[in-house]
Structures are given as C-alpha cells and as structure tokens.
C-alpha cells in the first residue's frame, strides 16, 4: 500500500471540515472492505489524504418510526440483517444483507460504503431503490437530498462531489400488505460477488389485483433503475405465470437495448428474465 496522510474524524462536523480542507485529494474510509483491496492493487492510485470515519457513532444505527426507516451509513450488513425493524418493514433489504460476502465482510462492510463504492454488483442498492430510498449528502456548504437512483452516473461513479459525505439513507416502510423479495445469482453461497440479482415488491388488493409493483435488477443496466416498463404490465392484473414471464422478457429486452450485445449477453438474456419471474413469484406466494 502506498503511503498516505491519515486522519481520524471524531465527529461528523469535523469530518466535513477535513473533507472541505483536503478536497479533492481525499478519500473517506469506512469499513475498508472495498478500499483496502483497491489500495493494494499494484496499479492503484491511492489518495493523498484519508479521513477515517469509522469511529463516528452518530453515523451508525437504524432508526424506525413514523412509518419511515432512517439508516445511518456506517451501519454494517451484519447489523442490517439482524435488525427486527428491517425484517418487518423491508425484508428484501434484510435478505440482501444476508447474502453479502461472508460473516467477516458483513461485520465490517457498511451500507454507506456499499452505496458510495457504486459497483454494479452492490447488493444493497437494488433493494434500496425498490424501497424508493433517498440519500442525504452533506458538505460544508450544503445539505442535499436525492432519490438513490439519481446518485449513480455509471459503475463506480456517483454525482457526489469529493467534499460530500453520505450521512443518511431513508425510506418509507413497505405497506403491511406488500410482499418483497431479493434474489441473487452467485457462483456459490459465501463470497460470491453478485453477477445478476433482482429486487421486487408487489402489493395486491383483496381481490388479488396487483396495485403496486417495483422491479430493480442488479448488474443488468448501465445505471440502476426501476424497470417501470415491466412494472406497468403488472398493475391492474392478477398474478399469473404468463404475466410474470412477460415482465421478465421485458426486462431482458430492455437490457439488450440499453447495453448492446456483449460476451455475456447470451447468458444474461434468459437468466435475467427467469430471475425477474422468480422474484415476482416469491412476492405472490
């Protein structure tokens, strides 16, 4: 690892001040599970200044109340998967946290780091977008809130400026009647970085008619998004295998339209369609 100047922030205010002072040759360090690997690569460009935010207690924890969840960015995947509030009001996020890395990675890796690293395979992102999550970015000069899906430009790139810190992730709890699911396809259970995944939410009325549907595939589109085109097919209909197959096919067609044909397309095209179908079926069991 190349040398750098290390600073430990003791509170959020101090972290923001240090960021402003050292921008743009600066990097925030949370759990380090992405960064330490990056910094050890022979070709890595390590930052001149590292601000360690891992000790900021005000940036840890899950708050639940008034129909909303506020997730602090330094909350670890292990804390998310054990949280009763998340299990009850956003079970798909709980599932995603469970399948990340290994116990050791989940004990260190944070949801904020997962989001800000912005890898196409970040597992908490599809569920959070399906939850219509918003993120709060703070700098010395402003505090702004944006929908999570607007944060990302492309893999490993966000709209956040180098002097901004992610300080909150929040979303409305899913309605009691809504069902949700997250399916990740990996090579094996532990330590498989997600290649394809799907987060889905489906709500139905008493008659079984779908009133709300959300579909967010991971590692599929150049930018994460809800696939409104497929969601529209579902609303107003009753759950059926044909309906879900049509939704899966729509996602698959859009993927090809937006990413073009790649070496992996032959594999991804049928697989993403089936994953969408299964994710929707899980919501309607």
């Amino acid at each position: 690892m190349k040398p750098f100047n290390y600073m430990r922030a003791t509170n959020l205010h101090e972290a923001i001040g240090l960021l402003a002072h050292h921008t743009p040759n600066v990097c925030l360090l949370a759990g380090g599970t992405d960064l330490l690997i990056e910094w050890r690569r022979p070709s890595a460009c390590t930052p001149e200044n590292v601000i360690d935010i891992s000790a900021l207690t005000e940036m840890k924890g899950i708050e639940s109340g008034n129909g909303r969840i506020v997730l602090k960015p330094l909350t670890t995947h292990a804390q998310i998967l054990k949280s009763q509030a998340i299990i009850e009001s956003a079970p798909l996020l709980s599932v995603a946290a469970t399948v990340i890395g290994s116990p050791q990675i989940r004990n260190r890796g944070t949801v904020g780091g997962n989001i800000m690293n912005a890898a196409a395979c970040a597992d908490t992102v599809p569920p959070l977008i399906a939850l219509n999550a918003e993120v709060v970015l703070q700098s010395e000069s402003e505090r702004r809130t944006l929908p999570l899906h607007e944060l990302f430009l492309k893999p490993y790139e966000t709209v956040a400026r180098p002097d901004e810190i992610l300080c909150e992730i929040r979303f409305e709890k899913l309605p009691v009647k809504a069902r949700s699911s997250f399916i990740k396809l990996g090579r094996r259970n532990a330590l498989s970085i997600s290649r394809l995944s799907v987060a889905a939410v489906v709500a139905r009325d008493e008659a079984g008619v779908i009133t709300n549907a959300r579909i967010v595939p991971g590692a599929t589109f150049p930018r994460w998004r809800r696939v409104v085109e497929a969601e529209k097919l579902l609303v107003g209909e009753k759950a059926s295998a044909e309906l879900f197959r049509a939704a899966g096919d729509t996602v698959s067609e859009l993927m090809i339209a937006e990413t073009g044909h790649r070496w992996s397309t032959e594999y991804k095209e049928p697989v993403i369609a089936v994953l969408v179908q299964r994710a929707l079926e899980q919501c309607c069991r």
Binding site: Y6, R8, L29, G31, G32, T33, L36, I37, D52, S54, A78, G101, S102, P103, Q104, I105, N107, R108, L191
Partner: peptide, 24 residues
C-alpha cells in the same frame, strides 16, 4: 478478504485482519 485465514475478533466480531487498516 476471501480465505478467512487472517480472521480475528474485534470487539467480539470476526473480521479479516487483512482488511482492517492498523489505525482503525
């Protein structure tokens, strides 16, 4: 972070020592 041979407990939680920066 893949093999776990470096696993230690930090405040009672298993972590990969190869992924913890010393000052942390």
């Amino acid at each position: 972070g893949e093999c776990g041979a470096c696993t230690v407990l930090m405040n009672g939680r298993a972590v990969n020592a190869c992924l913890v920066l010393a000052p942390q």
